[in-house]
């Protein structure tokens, strides 16, 4: 596969390490009264769609950036790639 890195352009997927669902960015609030359940759901209950999937890839043999890649799991078509740090900031994780 080829992942179109937002800064470095098309790069072979060999250079990347796959982690999984991009929802891993949405780590629950550990101080919430429902934290135990929230973390359980966060860690163990994830969608496994046959189709479009937002997922985390790490450019280990490149610039060490984590990317959020939107990929169709049935065709491998990649429709969107962005820096995970940008995505995380948009989710408010820098506050």
């Amino acid at each position: 596969m080829i992942i179109n890195h937002p800064l470095l352009g098309p790069r072979d997927a060999q250079e990347f390490v796959y982690l999984g669902d991009a929802n891993l960015i949405d780590r629950p609030d550990p101080s919430s009264s429902t934290a135990l359940d929230d973390f359980h759901d966060y860690l163990y209950l994830r969608d496994n769609p046959a189709g479009s999937h937002r997922e985390l890839w790490f450019h280990e043999q490149g610039d060490r950036s984590w990317l959020v890649v939107t990929r169709d799991t049935t065709t491998h078509e990649i429709t969107h790639v962005e820096l995970a740090s940008e995505y995380a900031k948009r989710q408010g994780r820098d506050r």
């Binding site: 984590w66 995970a84 995380a88 994780r93």
Partner: peptide
Amino acid sequence: AVSAFRHMEFCRQCLWPG
């Protein structure tokens, strides 16, 4: 060594980018 670094980069970029 490699996986711990990857994990720390994940924490840095994805969980606590601030």
